[in-house]
């Protein structure tokens, strides 16, 4: 594709390595429930900003890596990530121009969809978990979204 895309690869890769580190970092149990889904946030951000370079395929690979590192059913997170990336890429032109508050309000239902897909697959597989474990990441991710997006935008502009 375009030559200027190659400049974007490094920050994207870096952000995902940091995201993965934050995802598998051990945390105390109380905070654990509220661990933000870092990788979902990153998939949403990059799919919104660089949909040509970063869309369903890349999101799917991130999902598979997440499945392996979390020990969940292979394809569970991949499916959820893929759906999130599809929604974002499909509407990226609309979403991208939103002011930050409206953007946060848009990200919330997308995270809910993501968690619902995980919940759904867990249900089919026969894994039961209290509902708080699904809402925790949604709440924390939405709360952190404005901060993360400002940091990531800086990273993106430097690239």
């Amino acid at each position: 594709m375009n030559s200027h895309y190659t400049f974007h690869r490094l920050p994207i890769l870096l952000s995902f390595i940091i995201g993965l580190m934050l995802t598998i970092m051990p945390l105390p149990e109380v905070i654990e429930v509220f661990r933000p889904s870092w990788l979902t946030i990153l998939v949403i951000f990059w799919a919104m900003q660089l949909p040509q370079l970063w869309n369903v395929g890349s999101a799917w690979i991130i999902g598979i890596i997440l499945d392996v590192s979390q020990g969940t059913l292979l394809g569970q997170h991949a499916l959820a990530m893929c759906c999130v990336a599809f929604i974002i890429v499909r509407f990226h032109l609309i979403i991208r121009v939103f002011p930050i508050l409206q953007l946060t309000a848009t990200v919330f239902p997308i995270l809910v969809i993501y968690q619902f897909l995980l919940f759904w697959v867990n249900g089919v597989e026969g894994v039961n978990a209290p509902l708080i474990t699904y809402w925790g990441p949604v709440i924390s991710s939405t709360a952190l979204w404005p901060v993360i997006i400002i940091l990531l935008s800086k990273l993106r502009n430097k690239a």
Partner: peptide
Amino acid sequence: NSSGRIPALGFRFLGLIFVSILLM
């Protein structure tokens, strides 16, 4: 460059969903 459209997005999406379900 691309008028905001990603070629064969829907197709790829459905393909990957299918692969995910198969994997699971």
